[in-house]
Amino acid sequence: MHETGVVMLDVSKGKDVRVGAVAGAQSRTRLISLCVNGEWHEVAVKPRIMLVEVIRDTIGLTGTKASCESGICGACTVLIEGRPVLACITLAVECDGKQIRTVEGLAEGEKLSVVQEAFLDQGAVQCGFCTPGMLMSATALLERNPKPTRQDINKALEGNLCRCTGYNAIVDAVLQASGQENVKPVMK
């Protein structure tokens, strides 16, 4: 229904290209497929729709949080093909065919991941709004680098703001999850 005036732009085949609909006109809705936490979803989106909107509003996984919505705070961090990225500045159309992991995909059934457990053990969760993004950044770090130094942890989590904890408990949680520095649970 949004096709009025829009012509497929196809340069590779050398066709004559018309672009009458571009400036300020309706944009073409696209059907994309993305695999979120192991489930494939087919979603119709306009190009301007961000991945965070699809995850939260269309698929209904609201664990991923929308906070600054301008690519700064990290609350919306999800993993695309294992890489931590900001879903608030990622166009959904760019994720066609991609594997996406959100906070809902960390636990296996009732069993929390070691990172999730460590966050609880260390009191690294207060209001919890940064937590999903923080967990995704930490998970990506440990998958790539199972024994990170404190400096590695800082670099991996510098794009995730937390106003509650002062970060100390969060660093301890990542150290605990990686089995380093003999960090023991402080909450039972």
Partner: peptide, 24 residues
């Protein structure tokens, strides 16, 4: 007097905790 784990912790680390923006 004990450092008991948060009651809301499991919901918050699994994304199940419902904040206002999550109410549909």
């Amino acid at each position: 007097g004990k450092s008991v784990k948060r009651k809301d912790g499991p919901d918050k680390v699994t994304g199940k905790a419902v904040y206002t923006q999550d109410v549909r």
